[in-house]
Design a protein around this nucleic acid. Structure first.
Length: 520
RNA sequence: GCGGCCGUGGUCCAGCCUGGUUAAGACCCGAGCUUCCCGAGCUCGUGACGCGGGUUCGAAUCCCGCCGGCCGCACCA
């Protein structure tokens, strides 16, 4: 039986065409999922919203760079060294460990970058055994979390599928800063696939081997880590989980406004905290409730090799607990300095001060990075509710994959033909519509509710006489009657929240509602 | 990767232990009738034993391997 929320979400996602296991015909491969027709539309709309919030609203530059990345780029970025972990397994209990962690723990010595032989002799020398069961440790092997490939034939060039889209933005830095005409700060955005060869992916779409990320790199002068519009978010309340509190083992939240978090040095810069507030606003615009959002500071041990401060943006889910849907990393000048060194190019920028004098600086970077697939799951879970025992997906109207359902009340008397006319008209006005004439009208409303269609248009006998149709509201079940001629305009206004439903046309009560009103 | 549990139409499941009719049921889906504004009813219909091997006269059922799922451990830069 379907008991948990997560199972209910996944059941609908599968049955109605949001999310499907990939390569299912051949048994499937863990960590890969397809988006079905509705999932593809929903994902597209989440991305559209993200563009509105970041690319358009913040004036960032969006680019699109290749997934396949030559080895030298990822050597410079540190990923080749940090993604390839020397692993060893206990021969007795089978537990797997990172050799670098084991040796450091037992000897305090760092063996980062040492050869396999050196590591092995260190293990022997210090008689390091399995920390779990004390068993003997097996041979050291490399685990490469990047997918490797080669470019071209003959003398093959090693390349990897990018583990993050970020590098494409650092690589293009020289052209980008010219495009920005030397002004700081500027932001660059990229939406695309990232790839990580997870050892054991689980939890459905939460941990994938191929996933869609939406990343931003904000380049700024480290002496001026401010945002011109900080005032706009200064009083935004943030729920913060500090690294120091986590290390003490408490789950204590610190509630602070963006302004206070900055003043009390909880967050390192105005630019960081500005983006945290923006992240919160973005998530709530997707329908994630405020109380299901928190910011968790990564502990020093958790942080990526490039970061000096990272805040995870987490969303509470019933299925998986707190899920990281975005990370805000202060990457310092790590990437630019590494690429400058490895490419031998000058990646500094000339900035002028007020007096007209100038200096060359190496930009620092704040990186907000969003996981679109995880967001999509969170949106589904937080939208799914039940009404009279049947599922109702209360998606934000702007996110609904299908905007309008078009139903003939009956399958005869010319109603289907009329309904198809209306359908055609709405499609020509670019509404995403679905036609349904199968089963009773109630059944069709129920089908539409399950995928979150905000409005259903029904064509009945009266339509044939006076060219009016009913529009039914998903959340209230209220109905109004409007002229077909006005239908596109009215629907558009409704979808954009520019008019109250009951004011958008003549209110009509369906039988069930009329009766219950009379009884009262 | 280790251990435990599991895998049957689109979904949820019975059958498996104890091998042997045409693999049952519910929901969904499709067609028809009927009703007509909130999963009504009736009739009909499509559709399944994860993959591969083995044992056997005969495998959904027993055995082995693989793939996938869930849980715990590890991993998640």
């Amino acid at each position: 039986m379907l008991s948990s929320k997560h199972e209910k979400v996944m059941e609908i996602a599968k049955r109605r065409g949001f999310i499907w296991p990939a390569f299912e015909l051949y048994g499937g491969v863990a960590g890969f999922y397809d988006f079905g027709p509705l999932g593809t539309l929903l994902k597209e709309k989440i991305i559209q919203k993200w563009r509105e919030y970041f690319v358009i609203r913040e004036g960032f530059f969006e680019i699109d760079s290749p997934s396949i990345t030559p080895e030298e780029v990822l050597k410079a970025s540190g990923h080749v060294d940090h993604f390839v972990d020397a692993m060893t397994e206990c021969k007795k209990c089978g537990a797997a460990f990172k050799v670098t962690d084991l040796v450091k723990e037992k000897t305090g010595r760092s063996v980062e970058g040492k050869s396999k032989e050196e590591m092995e002799s260190l293990i022997k020398e210090h008689e390091i055994r399995c920390p779990e069961c004390g068993g003997e440790l097996g041979e050291i092997y490399d685990f490469n979390a990047m997918f490797e490939t080669t470019v071209g034939a003959g003398k093959k060039k090693i390349a990897y599928l990018r583990p993050e889209t970020a590098q494409g933005m650092f690589i293009d830095f020289k052209r980008l800063q010219r495009y920005a005409r030397g002004r700081l700060p500027f932001g660059v955005a990229q939406i695309g696939k990232g790839y990580r060869n997870e050892i054991s992916p689980r939890r459905g779409v939460i941990r994938l081997r191929e996933f869609t990320m939406a990343e931003i790199e904000i380049f700024f002068d480290p002496e001026n880590p401010t945002h011109p519009e900080f005032r706009e978010v200064a009083s935004e309340k943030l729920r913060l989980l500090l690294a120091t509190d986590q290390e003490r083992g408490t789950e204590k939240f610190t509630e602070a406004t963006a302004e206070d978090a900055l003043r009390e040095n909880i967050v390192c810069s105005q630019l960081m905290v500005y983006n945290m507030a923006r992240a919160k606003l973005f998530l709530t615009s997707l329908g994630i409730p405020e109380e299901a959002i928190r910011f968790r500071e990564q502990t020093p041990g958790e942080r990526a090799h490039y970061s000096s401060e990272t805040w995870d943006v987490e969303v509470w889910t019933e299925g998986f607990g707190w899920v990281e849907v975005a990370g805000l990393a202060y990457r310092t000048d790590y990437d630019l300095s590494r690429h400058a060194k490895f490419s031998k190019e000058d990646l500094t920028m000339f900035v002028q001060d007020e007096g007209g004098a100038g200096k060359k600086i190496l930009c620092h970077v704040v990186e907000p990075s969003y996981g679109i697939d995880r967001l999509l799951y969170c949106v589904l879970e937080h939208s799914l509710s039940e009404e009279n025992g049947r599922p109702l997906l209360r998606l934000k109207k702007e996110l609904a994959p299908v905007q309008v359902g078009v139903f003939p009340l009956l399958k005869r008397d010319g109603l289907p033909e009329k309904a198809r006319e209306v359908l055609k008209k709405l499609r020509s006005e670019k509404f995403i519509t679905e036609y349904d004439d199968s089963g009773s009208i109630g059944r069709r409303y129920a089908r539409a509710d399950e995928i979150g269609v905000p409005y259903c248009v029904t064509i009945d006998h009266r339509t044939l006489q006076d060219e009016t149709v009913t529009i039914r509201d998903r959340d209230t079940k209220d109905q109004i009657r409007v002229k077909i001629g006005n239908l596109p305009r009215v629907l558009q206004e409704l979808l954009e929240n520019r008019v109250e439903f009951q004011q958008a046309g003549e209110l009509v009560l369906p039988k069930s509602k009329a009766e219950s009103t009379e009884r009262r």
